[in-house]
């Protein structure tokens, strides 16, 4: 994944126009500030929904928790559907889709270069379509799930057993943390390099990613304990950490305390 993104950025700098020469040579220094934090749409619906959706997600997780402990695979599969629906609704209502005047972050402040081709992707001539963008983002989230699965295995998840468990856990991570980022950034290499390098400004989407990663990481902590509780099952604790971390990160990232700040 990362290599593909890096390739994208390399092609951008491979043949800069003459005028841009100085800018390009300093691009490493100047490109970062171009990435703006994502603002929630200013309409009242979005402003009220931004807090309603986290509450709904948290409620969903709490309600499904018992089922999750009893039968992780089935519960994760069904919860994944509902979470995905909630995330899509959240994205459509609250977030600016990639390529819109306010979304697509990195693009926003930059004038199109002379002779630059129109970017293909979500940005159709008529402006981005929220539904299409969200569906494409959902597909992208699905596509990166196997990579996340491999990451989980590398961290020590079971290799040959519990495949469904781990895969569903990866899917949850993808739908929660990556889907909003796909929605607002599309597949823009520069933005993703900033997100991946943790140099993006904090906002709801990036804060959610950081929170989800840290939460899932901490979720592994209780697994080895010999308490013999049902909820220590793989991957219940990871999922708990993931949801808690994501919601916390998203709320914090969107709050005026840290919004726009960088690591």
């Amino acid at each position: 994944m990362s290599s593909a993104l890096a390739k994208g950025s390399s092609s951008r700098f491979a043949a800069p126009s003459k005028n841009d020469m100085t800018a390009a040579s300093q691009s490493t220094a100047t490109a970062t500030p171009l990435l703006h934090p994502i603002q929630i749409k200013p309409n009242p619906l979005a402003q009220s929904a931004r807090h309603a959706f986290p509450a709904l997600l948290a409620g969903l997780f709490v309600v499904r928790f018992r089922a999750l402990v009893a039968d992780p695979v089935w519960a994760m599969a069904t919860t994944l559907m509902l979470s995905a629906v909630l995330q899509v609704a959240y994205a459509v209502i609250c977030l600016p889709p990639a390529g819109s005047s306010q979304g697509g972050a990195a693009r926003a402040a930059r004038k199109p270069r002379p002779g630059e081709k129109k970017r293909v992707g979500f940005e159709s001539a008529a402006g981005p379509n929220a539904i299409a963008t969200s569906l494409l983002s959902l597909i992208l989230s699905g596509l990166v799930t196997p990579f996340l699965y491999i990451c989980l295995v590398l961290f020590g998840a079971p290799f040959l057993t519990h495949t469904a468990h781990t895969l569903l856990c990866a899917a949850h991570l993808s739908v929660l943390a990556l889907f909003p980022l796909f929605y607002v950034h599309g597949v823009d290499a520069v933005s993703w390099a900033a997100v991946g390098g943790f140099s993006a400004p904090l906002d709801e989407t990036f804060g959610g990613l950081v929170g989800a990663l840290v939460g899932a990481w901490l979720g592994a902590v209780p697994i080895p304990l010999d308490w013999d509780r049902d909820w220590q099952k793989w991957p219940v604790t990871i999922l708990c950490g993931l949801y808690a971390g994501y919601l916390l990160g998203r709320e914090l990232g969107g709050s005026s305390l840290v919004w726009g700040k960088r690591f």
Binding site: S2, A193, G196, S199
Partner: peptide
């Protein structure tokens, strides 16, 4: 693995 992931991500910088 955590170390490896963080170095991989920080490589983007």
């Amino acid at each position: 693995t955590t170390f490896g992931f963080i170095t991989a991500l920080s490589a983007l910088r």
